[in-house]
Write a protein that binds this DNA or RNA. Structure first.
Lengths: 311, 311
DNA sequence: CGTTCCTCTGCTCATCTGAGCAGAACCCTG
DNA sequence: CAGGGTTCTGCTCAGATGAGCAGAGGAACG
């Protein structure tokens, strides 16, 4: 009986039959030390596959690699579920878990908005924080508190954290620079932006530069605008600001018309949590981590693997 | 953090990160005993799935159940491979492994023939026995030693076992009883049949009662004959003899025209190894083990599970 | 054929782990 | 809120396991 077959037999007796290495040795006529060594080899060769099957499982190995490679404070990687639709939900739950476990508990949290943020808000347990102030970090859709809107994200997170939301009463992108300047000069708005910029924790996502963007959906940009941005190298946006693969603003004029915390302020935050799920966002995700725009990354396994590939 | 989530974290640290229960306890702020208990629960709840991935893996649990339920000497169950076509090959290899490991080494081995037997013969290593005599247990196709024929099976097994084959020079089923009697009265033939009947080890398969049968293919039976046999309750044949679900001969007249060891002789053998693979043979397999026609069973996991279902 | 180098084996010993148990904590129920 | 039962917790202790090591065996080479 060759060694590989022996590994299989040993693994079966050990894992399926719960026998001790001693018993297995006696059974197969080998020493118990050899049994131990065969078991190690069986694991190394992948004959024994140990899998943790659970929606909240994580990939600690990938997390460690990401932290090291990109100099992050922390990373959370969840395995991709069987059904591709469920990945956002899983990542969102992981982000919610992370948020709830943050120490020190955040007192002021600046947030972006979008489908991912909505999912995170929904996944947060009541009492995840004690009296947190949630500030919108960039302008956004619908100022009412209807589910899914930018305001509702902040409101839900705040409510579940026993605190209150500070909403930014402004569109994401304005048509004219003058209007943007005017809005920003409003004392309320500028106070909110300052408060957001000073938040010790940011929680944000990014979107790929494509026609499905929420900015198109909400009429801030046209598909032509997006096409032009892509032509100029845009890979996606965060907090409404479109950047290229190197993390630079693609269109400074457009950027001037965008309301919200700017990227330098984000980069300076002591803790910024970037949450991303799905293959469409691999490029923008790479840019975000490469440019040091986040200190904590929450994502799915395929994204993590993509980020760890040399490119 | 609820207990289930804790199980997931503990399992990850234990299996993915190879941490000791002590370390995990320290990390998560729980006692090492709790860690141990959580691991046990995680396994019980199926959060941790341990799988042995190897073409030669076996299902010892199912084997034990089969041995107990059907009073067998031994059973070998291999997991079904991803590609359904490979199951025959795996089962055949398992049968070959079993054969090579038999103690005492068989001196006279009576064999049937068919695709499964051919595969077993091919899977046997050179030197699997020392000077074994391989006798054909039932009449069969092609008396030359062309690959795949009944003779070639016996010849290959014998050759690899350093012995010689004793071929039964007769068709499987004859058209007239008289011819069969005549053949059997030939001294050579009767001596071979006696030698086969006296073999201390039998190695055989069975076929389902359907139009794909080798008997139809070789012209011993017509599809109409098969249909009639099925109508009378036949589930399949072994050694050319068609039996019903209770293990009784379906058509005594047909049986009288069949050349080979009879079922009582098979049942009386000290060791009879029945090898079967594939869903088509579930019924005949059930009959064989139910009727005590084999003492050792080699099969695939789906067949084993089918056999263990109450019916 | 001897020497060297490498691998493999079975050992000791320290550490890790699971079984079993006693006390603590919890939860019904009256 | 007391009593009785159940579950949970952390302990002891024995048994199981892995790290590291010394010697055996075996191949490669001069």
């Amino acid at each position: 009986m060759d060694d590989e077959l022996l590994m299989v037999r040993v693994a079966e007796l050990s894992y399926d039959e719960n026998k001790t290495q001693d018993e297995i040795g006696a059974l197969l006529g080998i020493s118990r030390w050899k049994v131990g060594r065969l078991l190690v080899q069986a694991r190394e060769r992948g004959i024994v596959r140990i899998e943790i099957v659970h929606p909240r499982a994580r990939r600690l190995g990938l997390e460690r690699e990401l932290v090291q490679r990109y100099g992050l404070q922390d990373a959370v990687v969840v395995p991709a579920p069987e059904e591709p639709d469920a990945v956002l939900e899983r990542v969102a739950r992981a982000a919610a878990d992370l948020l709830a476990a943050l120490r020190p508990v955040p007192r002021t949290l600046a947030v972006s908005w979008g489908r991912t943020l909505t999912a995170i808000a929904e996944a947060l347990p009541d009492g995840w924080a004690r009296g947190v102030t949630v500030v919108q970090a960039n302008g956004g859709v619908s100022l009412n508190r209807r589910a899914g809107g930018a305001a509702s994200v902040a409101a839900t997170i705040a409510q579940r954290g026993g605190g209150h939301a500070v909403l930014l009463p402004s569109p994401a992108i304005l048509e004219r620079v003058e209007t943007k300047r005017a809005i920003e000069s409003d004392r309320t708005v500028s106070a909110i932006l300052e408060q957001a910029a000073g938040a010790n924790t940011f929680l944000f996502t990014a979107g790929p530069a494509d026609e499905g963007s929420a900015h198109v959906e909400n009429g801030y940009l046209t598909t032509d605008d997006i096409a032009e941005l892509v032509r100029r190298g845009a890979v996606g946006d965060l907090l409404g600001r479109y950047i290229d693969a190197d993390g630079n603003i693609v269109d400074p004029q457009l950027d001037e018309r965008t309301v919200g915390v700017d990227l330098e302020q984000l980069r300076a935050a002591p803790r910024s949590i970037f949450v991303t799920a799905g293959a469409a966002k691999h490029d923008i995700a790479r840019t975000v981590v490469n440019s040091g725009l986040c200190s904590i990354l929450v994502t799915d396994e395929p994204t993590a693997r993509d980020l760890l590939e040399e490119k």
